[in-house]
């Protein structure tokens, strides 16, 4: 049982035992969150700043609720509308905030590596809430917790990740995490949305849903960004849905007890059929949202613990 990281920038640098520690911690918060007294003091006295350079209601709310339930002072900075537009660089913004002594900095940014860059410049814990098409570690962790609760294990599962892999940070973090936990991973999608070099990642690459979903335990659908049509990645939404959208017929290739996941927000009728998304026997999409809060609480608690350990103890004589 251990968690050594100073920042949560991605799954890449987490060891399997750190992932398990975090998920175990999150389990306790699932219970807390279902109780009437949703409060803990793990982050009491600490300041959490959510810096979102990209609009996101769901993730930002999840981080905000998580911080508040643990007793942190939470601030939301809407960076799309502030001084960043006036030409201030990411680092200047970070240094300005750093001078206010935050303890936890939650960052979402449209460029890959933004959280890594910030982590080098500030002296608080940085949590990556999604950077470009690089990583989205808390999403992968909440997916892992959801899978572990549904399947009672997080290894030796066949997991199909379907859709726009090339532009998806969710896919990258999930591939890393599920790979570290020794699962069989299949990537399914049109070749235009498959990153070059995907075959070298230790995964199977499939170009049709039938092969990709065959005997899968978990079917993870990704959101198709509407703007992908402009770049000539796919011919049309209806052709995409016909070939890669999840419907009952395609899901029939998976195991009978396969679960269906989606990081949200969904495009019903584009990557997923509405009736499957709402099928409480198959879809765990609402569970994912619930696990999101618990996982973010756990991540912030563990990082705060490491942060306090590195800071000098207060002078008791003063």
């Amino acid at each position: 049982m251990s968690f050594r990281a100073r920042h949560l920038l991605g799954i890449e640098h987490l060891a399997p035992d750190e992932i398990v520690t975090l998920l175990d911690q999150a389990e306790t918060y699932v219970d807390l969150n279902r109780s009437d007294e949703k409060h803990d003091t793990a982050l009491k006295g600490l300041t959490q700043i959510n810096m979102f350079f990209e609009a996101s209601t769901r993730t930002q709310t999840s981080f905000e609720v998580a911080g508040k339930r643990l007793g942190a002072d939470v601030m939301n900075m809407h960076m799309q509308s502030s001084s960043v537009k006036k030409g201030e660089t990411l680092i200047d913004t970070a240094l300005t905030l750093n001078a206010m002594h935050p303890d936890l900095l939650v960052v979402r940014h449209p460029s890959s590596g933004a959280a890594n860059l910030l982590a080098q410049k500030v002296n608080c814990a940085v949590l990556n809430a999604g950077d470009g098409r690089h990583e989205h570690p808390t999403q992968a962790l909440l997916d892992a917790l959801t899978i572990r609760r549904a399947k009672d294990r997080l290894h030796r599962l066949t997991i199909a990740i379907c859709g726009d892999i090339a532009h998806s940070r969710v896919a990258r973090s999930n591939i890393l995490l599920l790979g570290k936990m020794e699962n069989r991973i299949r990537l399914v999608g049109p070749p235009t949305l498959m990153p070059s070099g995907a075959a070298d990642w230790g995964v199977e690459v499939c170009q049709n849903m039938e092969d990709g979903l065959k005997d899968a335990d978990v079917v993870m659908m990704l959101r198709l960004q509407k703007e992908r049509m402009d770049g000539a990645f796919i011919p049309s939404e209806r052709e995409y849905f016909h070939r890669f959208g999840l419907d009952g017929a395609k899901l029939a290739h998976a195991k009978d007890d396969a679960i269906v996941m989606h990081p949200g927000p969904m495009n019903r009728g584009v990557e997923i059929d509405g009736t499957i998304a709402d099928d409480i026997n198959r879809s765990v999409i609402q569970d994912q949202v619930e696990m999101g809060v618990a996982v973010r609480m756990a991540a912030m608690k563990l990082l705060a613990q490491n942060l306090r350990a590195t800071r000098p103890a207060p002078d008791v004589m003063a």
């Binding site: 890959s112 590596g113 098409r133 690089h134 090339a166 990153p195 070059s196 070099g197 995907a198 990642w201």
Partner: peptide, 15 residues
């Protein structure tokens, strides 16, 4: 340059 490294790091790449 496109390939495994750029894809993992999520950097826009060219063949």
């Amino acid at each position: 340059t496109s390939g495994k490294f750029a894809a993992l790091k999520g950097i826009p790449a060219v063949s």
